[in-house]
Structures are given as structure tokens and as C-alpha cells.
């Protein structure tokens, strides 16, 4: 992967990177459902998954939870604080 996450990544850039890598994962998973014995696809899947895990950790640490069980704060409930994905503000 060429896009390395770093502390300078703005939340929108980080989200964009996650959306792109998740798209590649969706494509690879659908392909593997039909061709489960394809080694090349399986290797690619693991490469994507490693990067995805890293990006998601960075996003959840610096921006907010992607899933309700990823709320890291013991002081406050962050799941409902940011704009929801269908709002224009969440996409800019």
C-alpha cells in the first residue's frame, strides 16, 4: 500500500483511505466467495486486511468510533457525537 497513515492525515483523508481499502476488500471477498482456492486473491485479501486494521485503529484513536463497540472513551459516549454518514458534513 502506498498511502501510509500519519498523524498529519486529516479525518476526511483518513476516512477516504478507509473507504478505498474497504472497497478493495469487498471486491476481493466477493471474488473469494466464488473462487475460494485462488491463492493470489487470498494473499491480496491479507495484504488489504493488514492495512485496513492499521487505518481503522488510527481513525478510531484520532477521529471517533467506526462501530458502536469501538467507543474508546470511558468518560463520554462518542458514538452519536459526529455527523452521521448521510449528512453532507460527514462527507466533506
Amino acid at each position: 500500500m502506498t498511502n501510509q497513515p500519519n498523524p498529519q492525515n486529516r479525518p476526511a483523508e483518513l476516512l477516504d483511505m478507509i473507504q478505498k481499502i474497504d472497497f478493495a476488500l469487498v471486491e476481493t471477498i466477493l471474488y473469494l466467495d466464488a473462487y475460494p482456492d485462488n491463492r493470489q486473491a487470498l494473499v491480496f485479501y491479507h495484504k488489504l486486511l493488514t492495512e485496513r486494521t492499521r487505518l481503522a485503529e488510527q481513525y478510531e484513536k484520532n477521529v471517533g468510533p467506526l462501530t458502536a463497540t469501538a467507543n474508546r472513551s470511558t468518560a463520554s459516549w462518542n458514538w452519536t457525537k459526529a455527523p452521521w454518514p448521510w449528512e453532507l458534513a460527514a462527507n466533506c
Partner: peptide, 9 residues
């Protein structure tokens, strides 16, 4: 997951 699959702006 708290994101769209593809952005809508």
C-alpha cells in the same frame, strides 16, 4: 459501520 461505502457530497 459509521461511514458510507462511497461518499455523497
Amino acid at each position: 459501520e459509521r461511514k458510507l461505502q462511497y461518499p455523497v457530497r
